[in-house]
Design a protein around this nucleic acid. Sequence first.
DNA 1: ACGCAGGATAAAATCGATTGCTTACAAGGG
DNA 2: CCCTTGTAAGCAATCGATTTTATCCTGCGT
Lengths: 352, 352
Amino acid sequence: MKDVADGKSRKPPARLKSYKPVSLKQVAEHLGLNPATVSVVLNDVPGRSIPQSTRDRIKAAAKEMNYQPNLLARSLRSRRTLTIGILVPELGEGYHTQIMSGIGDQLIGAGYFYFTAHHRHQAHLVDEYIRMFIGRGAQGIIAVDTLIEHPVPVPLVAVAGHRHIEGITNVVLDHARAAELALNHLYSLGHRHIAFMRGQPFSSDSDERWNHLQRYSAKLGLEIRPELVISLDRDMSSPELGYPVVQQLVASKLPFTALVAFNDIAAIGSVRALQDLSLRVPADVSVIGFDDINAASYTSPRLTTIRQPLAEIGRIATQALLNRIHDAQPPRDEITVLPTLMVRESTGPAPK
Amino acid sequence: MKDVADGKSRKPPARLKSYKPVSLKQVAEHLGLNPATVSVVLNDVPGRSIPQSTRDRIKAAAKEMNYQPNLLARSLRSRRTLTIGILVPELGEGYHTQIMSGIGDQLIGAGYFYFTAHHRHQAHLVDEYIRMFIGRGAQGIIAVDTLIEHPVPVPLVAVAGHRHIEGITNVVLDHARAAELALNHLYSLGHRHIAFMRGQPFSSDSDERWNHLQRYSAKLGLEIRPELVISLDRDMSSPELGYPVVQQLVASKLPFTALVAFNDIAAIGSVRALQDLSLRVPADVSVIGFDDINAASYTSPRLTTIRQPLAEIGRIATQALLNRIHDAQPPRDEITVLPTLMVRESTGPAPK
DNA sequence: ACGCAGGATAAAATCGATTGCTTACAAGGG
DNA sequence: CCCTTGTAAGCAATCGATTTTATCCTGCGT
């Protein structure tokens, strides 16, 4: 290696073990100016008279010295941390992950960074993490599928939360529409004996989804036989979740030609269970899922499902939060998102 | 609701819209003490003589006033932010997500919080986010499947990075062992005409994996026919990735009885392609994947794959980083993780 | 020539902690 | 009786910015 000789990179980027970033004060000193002046210029504070020449000088120096403001210091004073906190029940699981992907995209795009914390449905952790987020200066919080029990001192947007708490904006799926899409689809394929799978009690969408399915069944004149209603209870996020309940359902020998699963994960396990019992999907039994997680289109047969626009939901929640942080709009209580029916291969005409 | 009467929760948690947390100063004032003293006690600073009675008084007051130290202020002074930054190429995609799940678990367990940023393989974003992490006080960085080009002023652990850069610890899979597992499995099932799928050039494991497959094939006396080697090139994370290349492979009419896919995602697409061309998996063609993402066991046939312990890798990387931050151990250059063979349903004896 | 209105920049307070250095007082040693 | 030692706590500087207030200077009007 030889010495660099070109004008540009004379000074190496100095990234060795313990370099210390340049501070505002150093920039000011270098320029023979006061830190305050430099700050004012770099932040484009309005209503200050500073000649363009000085402004240019300062900006040039900042760039040249590779000045990066220390966000901690700035935030301490100004209360703008450009940071928000995200609460999820679990990491590395399809549904939450895809929502977070939408959130992350939108936040980074808006210049915000975010903390993530997962609580595995433990209420005391929820409270603790909220406190820690705030202690670290989070200006807002997004809670995904998380039960919030108290008002919180910063703006909070809940995704798939169904409690109405003062000051909290909920982003929820239009469950009425979802039920309608699912049942119309099956009904129009000729299914009249439909089995239902309810979600776990701790999952925030469980009740809502079930209520609307009941309601719309009634509307269609479909009778729901209680023996054909099975319930999830285990807290797991693998398809195994849906396997045993469907096994039992089949073992009960009650006739049914379609199954409305609680979500895609459980639907995938259900399809497995049916196949392992020599029932063909969809020839013998149609299965419809909920969510449209990525894996739903990898299975065979590919899963017919009620799609929640997960990433979109994340983006909407984020936008709502940012609006509230900036007081851009009067806070809304609830934002509804529309589901779509994705017809794939796991549903078909009811057998004779 | 009636008034609470028990001694504990006399004072409501005051979580209304714009409450302001109590500061150290307020606690000190309340006690008639100096903030410094309070700080010293609450942090259990060693080598200070403060009588137990005072200590108790302070701790009681802190608890009673629900004092929460402001992490921003603390970090500004003490440089301990208990924060690290995580870089990933993409959010909401199986492989990275599962590694992040291990990272998140371990970090939260150790009392650290983390920022996540995704860069979609854009080098300039990588640099920018590293700067921003540091500006926000990150004490270390974990980079997953991300190309790091320069040394960085804080400890950095790279997962599946293969560049050796001063001061960076790499956590990598034992690719030699992986190749051995995959090829032994197929070989012992009688496969002699094996097709290979190489990864995209921007994926950090591509070359390493391919080199070891070649090397071990030679060892087994297996000849690799160049016409049976296909390459991925698109930057996508859906199984569609593997579909067209396998279609072409089959169209070429060259005989093969097994396919070593680059990863599970591509393997799932490959299986689809084969099935759509009326080839049975594994009766006509065996397919083996890499990674063992969650979805690998949801497909039908369930995917035989070389398992990377993804969450474990995340935990190992995190532990390595924390060790370096605490100077607990001399920094290691490389940490190797062992793969496992997961035999499922997509591989079987070679057809005659 | 004097006062005064800005324009340009400096000074100082502040945010909420941590930390090194005093100080005040009491007890023990020579 | 003075000096050391130790205990208990206060003082003040500091971290790196932002923000409010003050000061200096110049040119202009009268």
